[in-house]
């Protein structure tokens, strides 16, 4: 270990932010290096020197006054209602998964390709000049509305702007970013539970992707369909050990999911981390007073396998 590394990390050492192995190595080095020992002392002294500007607890009067003022303000405040969620949430989703640019690009590319294809078919047998000057109009069934009509002055040329609703499809590898974006979109937004199930099923194949994991967590917490929640739960299972967010979500499912099957599955997935303190607390609650007899007995059995806590 070099002195330079120690100098860079001594602050983290003093603030107890070094991993155990690095901490051990640093201590070994400092024991035989006077310069680094002096640096450690200097940073420790610096911490002590800051004591005169220490944090003061707010006085009880100040706290009470603040609470009363907040209560008054809450009286007149309104929580965001369903309408605001309806307006803002899709925007949040789009922002979170950076969906908007990708979707726009996908629609543009598919639309452009479709347009060229249609023009080519309709234009067979006609001259190139005609093709360019008279692009084929969209099929009337796909026109959702006309937004403006303008005639060019002194000619018979008319420009019509119209909107179309055309079902699109995109085929690609699962690793294709556009495919993944569409799957993420389908997992959260589609009204059809079967489509959500298909998308969650595919997403579980790549839970290492952060957006995918978020989508699975979302499905586990909020999807109305039990099958989709179960599928998401299974996809998240391998990450219960290392990801606290996943563990929390599985614990939530265990405590409050409406379906006993989902809860039993959550209980099974938590078995490898039953010694974790958050899991232990939930197990104790379930063992004492859960309405479901099977879950109660399973929780008791899992607790019985735990070592005694001092």
């Amino acid at each position: 270990m070099k002195c330079e590394w120690v100098q860079q990390n001594v602050v983290l050492y003093v603030y107890d932010e070094l991993p155990d192995d690095a901490r051990h190595e640093l201590e070994q080095h400092v024991a035989r290096c006077a310069t680094c020992m002096a640096e450690v002392r200097a940073v420790k002294n610096f911490r002590t020197d800051l004591a005169p500007f220490s944090v003061q607890e707010p006085s009880p009067n100040f706290l009470t006054d603040s609470r009363m003022k907040l209560q008054e303000a809450l009286e007149s405040a309104e929580q965001g209602g369903w309408w605001s969620r309806l307006v803002f949430e899709p925007m949040n989703w789009l922002q979170q998964i950076r969906f908007a640019p990708a979707l726009t690009a996908a629609i543009f590319i598919v639309g452009f390709a479709g347009g060229i294809g249609a023009t080519y078919k309709m234009g067979k047998g006609r001259g190139t000049e005609e093709l360019i000057s008279k692009p084929a109009p969209a099929a009337l069934s796909s026109v959702s509305g006309v937004s403006s009509i303008a005639q060019q002055p002194g000619s018979d040329q008319v420009t019509i702007k119209y909107d179309t609703i055309v079902p699109q499809q995109h085929t690609g590898s699962f690793n294709d970013p556009e495919v993944q974006q569409l799957l993420l979109y389908a997992a959260r937004n589609n009204f059809n539970a079967g489509v959500r199930m298909d998308s969650v099923n595919l997403l579980t194949q790549q839970p290492n992707n952060q957006h995918v994991r978020e989508a699975l967590l979302y499905a586990l917490r909020y999807d109305s369909n039990t099958g989709v929640r179960l599928k998401a739960l299974n996809g998240l299972g391998p990450y219960v050990k290392d990801d606290v967010q996943v563990r929390d979500a599985v614990l939530e499912a265990l405590m409050s999911d409406t379906n006993p099957g989902v809860r039993v599955e959550a209980l099974r997935l938590l078995d490898p981390v039953r010694a974790d303190s958050s899991v232990r607390i939930v197990l104790q609650r379930l063992a004492q007073k859960d309405e479901n007899r099977y879950i109660r007995s399973q929780a008791r059995a899992m607790i019985a396998q735990l070592p005694e806590m001092n």
């Binding site: 929580q79 965001g80 917490r221």
Partner: peptide, 10 residues
């Protein structure tokens, strides 16, 4: 309080 509805436990 106003934004609690949008808190998603992330």
């Amino acid at each position: 309080y106003k934004n609690l509805g949008r808190f998603r436990f992330e």
